[in-house]
Write a protein that binds this DNA or RNA. Structure first.
Length: 465
RNA sequence: UCCUCAGUAGCUCAAUGGUAGAGCAUUCGGCUGUUAACCGAAGGGUUGUAGGUUCGAGUCCUACCUGAGGAGCCA
C-alpha cells in the first residue's frame, strides 16, 4: 500500500533530488522523439505527476505498455520541471507495469466525454478529472459534517437501515422480504407476513428521524448520517432511489435554534471544503460551472435570508401582480412549487433562503403546531439552482396535540406507540432537520445531475455496478 | 408516471428522401521538453430495435427500447 506520506500529493513537497517511487494510473501520455511524458495520478489530488522518460532510460518493451489507463510504479528522482504546467516532475529510472490497458479498447480518451457516457462506465469514470474531484470533495464534505457535529458534542446515531415502521409517510418504500416470491404464503387472502423473516412486513428506511428523536431525548444533541431509500418513480436530475442523508436532532431546541444551526452548519461545511479542496473546486469553476467558487465564498460569508411562508406567498403574489406568470397558482395554503422556490432564491434574494411556518395542512403530522393553529414550525432551506437542500421542523412534543394530529390525518395510532410514549415520559421541546448529502454535493461542485455526485447511482430501471 | 427532445465510427457530432462524413481516439511513420502536444497516412459503420410508406429511407410514419431535459413526488 501507499504509506502515510507517499501519495503523489506528498511527492510534490519532497526536496528536489530525492529518490521516490510513485504508484498510480496513467491519465494521458505524450511522446516526442527523445522523450516521453506520462501523467500519473493516484487519486490523492487533482494534479497529475508528470513522469519524464528520456530516450533509452526504460526498456522499449516496458514503455509499450505504459499507455493511458495502465497502472504503474515509477521510481526515479524528483527534479525541477522546465515545463510550464508543474513545478516538479519525476525523472524515471525504472517502471513496473502492474496492469496494462489496451489502448485500442480503453474507453477514456484525452478529449472530454459526456456525463451520460461516463455514467455507463462508472467503473472507470473514477479515473477522470471530473470524478476524481467529485469524490475527493464528497469525502471532505462527509468529514466536515462529522467534524461540525462532533465539535459541538453531538452523538452520531446509527439509525437502522431496515425499518419496521410501516407508516413513516415519506413516499413509497422498498420492501425487504425473504418470502418466496414465486409462492407467497397467504392467510385469508392477505400475504402472511408472520412467516416473513422479521415476522412482519419490513422496508428499507426512508428516514432516520423518528429514531433520532429517541436518541435526542436521551443524549440531547444527536445526528444520523447514513443511506436512505425511496422507491418513488422519480426521473429527475435531483432524485435517487438510494441516497445519503444527515439528520441532526436537538433536545431543548425551537425552530429559531434549528434555523440558526442549519445556517451555521451549511456555512461551516462550505468553508471546510473551500479550505481543503481548492484545486478540485477551481476545476469545477473552470469546466463545470463558472459561478461555483463565487457562490460558495459568498454563502460562507453572508447571512441567509429568512422569510415566513406567509411573507413568501406575499412576495409571489406581488410578482404575479407585476406581470409574472406562474404555472401553478399562488395563494395562502398552496405548497410552494419549484418555480416559486427558484424565484425566491435565484431572483429575489440570490442566496439561500429559509422559509418557515408553513400551513399545517401541507406539512407532516409531527411538526409543532403554532399558536395561530393554522401553521406549523416547519422550515425549508432553499438554495439557488437546486431548490430545497434542507427540510426540518420543531417537533410536536405535546402528547395530546400529537395524538389528535395523528388521528386527524387518519394515521393508526398503534403504529406510533413508542413515538407517543416519548411524549408521555420526559418529553422536551426538540427540533431537527435533514440534509441530502448529494444535494449538497451538487451545490458544492456545480454538477448538474445528482447521478454524478454519488459513486454508483440507483435510479428507476438502473442499478448497474 | 406525464410532457418534450435525442439515438449515425470507440467518443463528440455532420449529412435537401438519391454513393454515410469530420474532429478526437486507435494503428503506422515523422518531430530533442510536451501540457486536451504537433505534422503525415491508414483502418474503423447492420445509422437503437421491429414493422410500414416509397423506384429509393440515416432522413417520413407506427410501436417498442435506451438516454437526457421539464413537471409531479421529495432530500
Amino acid at each position: 500500500m501507499i504509506e502515510k506520506n507517499g501519495y503523489i500529493r506528498d511527492l510534490f513537497r519532497q526536496p528536489l533530488g530525492a529518490p521516490v517511487a510513485a504508484l498510480g494510473w496513467v491519465k494521458t501520455r505524450r511522446d516526442s522523439k527523445g522523450v516521453h511524458f506520462i501523467q500519473l495520478n493516484d487519486g490523492s489530488c487533482f494534479q497529475d505527476l508528470q513522469v519524464v522518460v528520456e530516450a533509452g532510460a526504460i526498456p522499449e518493451a516496458t514503455l509499450l505498455h505504459a499507455t493511458t489507463g495502465a497502472c504503474l510504479r515509477v521510481s526515479g528522482e524528483l527534479i525541477a520541471s522546465p515545463g510550464a504546467g508543474q513545478a516538479v516532475e519525476l525523472k524515471a529510472r525504472e517502471i513496473h507495469v502492474y496492469g496494462p490497458a489496451d489502448p485500442a479498447t480503453y474507453p477514456l480518451q484525452k478529449k472530454g466525454h459526456s456525463m451520460e457516457f461516463l455514467r455507463e462506465i462508472a467503473h472507470l469514470r473514477t479515473r477522470s478529472n471530473t470524478f476524481g474531484a467529485v469524490f475527493r470533495v464528497r469525502n471532505a464534505l462527509s468529514f466536515a459534517i462529522h467534524k461540525f457535529f462532533q465539535e459541538r458534542g453531538f452523538i452520531w446515531v446509527h439509525a437502522p437501515i431496515i425499518s419496521g415502521s410501516d407508516a413513516e409517510g415519506a413516499g413509497r418504500m422498498f420492501q425487504v422480504t425473504t418470502l418466496d416470491l414465486m409462492n407467497v404464503p397467504r392467510q385469508g387472502g392477505q400475504i402472511d407476513y408472520t412467516q416473513d423473516f422479521f415476522g412482519k412486513s419490513t422496508n428499507l428506511t426512508v428516514s432516520g428521524q423518528l429514531e433520532a428523536e429517541i436518541f435526542a431525548l436521551a443524549f440531547s444533541n444527536v445526528y444520523t448520517f447514513g443511506p436512505t431509500f425511496r422507491a418513488e418513480n422519480s426521473n429527475t436530475p435531483r432524485h435517487l432511489a438510494e441516497f445519503w442523508m444527515i439528520e441532526p436532532e436537538m433536545a431543548f431546541c425551537d425552530l429559531d435554534g434549528n434555523r440558526k444551526l442549519a445556517e451555521a452548519f451549511l456555512k461551516d461545511i462550505i468553508a471546510h471544503v473551500l479550505d481543503h479542496c481548492r484545486p478540485d473546486l477551481e476545476f469545477f469553476n473552470k469546466r463545470i460551472d463558472p459561478t461555483v467558487l463565487e457562490t460558495l465564498e459568498h454563502v460562507a460569508a453572508s447571512s441567509f435570508e429568512h422569510v415566513t411562508y406567509t411573507e413568501a406567498v406575499r412576495l409571489l403574489e406581488k410578482a404575479r401582480d407585476q406581470g409574472r406568470a406562474w404555472e401553478f397558482p399562488v395563494f395562502w395554503g398552496a405548497d410552494l412549487q419549484s418555480e416559486h422556490e427558484r424565484y425566491l432564491t435565484e431572483e429575489v434574494f440570490r442566496k439561500p433562503v429559509v422559509v418557515t411556518d408553513y400551513p399545517k395542512e401541507i406539512k407532516a403530522f409531527y411538526m409543532r403546531l403554532n399558536e395561530d393553529e393554522r401553521t406549523v414550525r416547519a422550515m425549508d432551506v432553499l438554495a439557488p439552482r437546486i431548490g430545497e437542500i434542507i427540510g426540518g421542523s420543531q417537533r410536536e412534543e405535546r402528547h395530546d396535540v400529537l395524538l389528535s394530529k395523528i388521528r386527524a390525518q387518519g394515521l393508526r395510532e398503534q403504529d406510533y406507540w413508542w413515538y407517543l410514549e416519548l411524549r408521555k415520559y420526559g418529553t422536551a421541546p426538540h427540533a431537527g432537520f435533514g440534509l441530502g448529502l448529494e444535494r449538497m454535493m451538487m451545490y458544492l461542485t456545480g454538477m448538474k445531475n445528482i447521478r454524478d455526485v454519488i459513486p454508483f447511482p440507483r435510479t428507476p430501471g438502473s442499478a448497474e455496478f
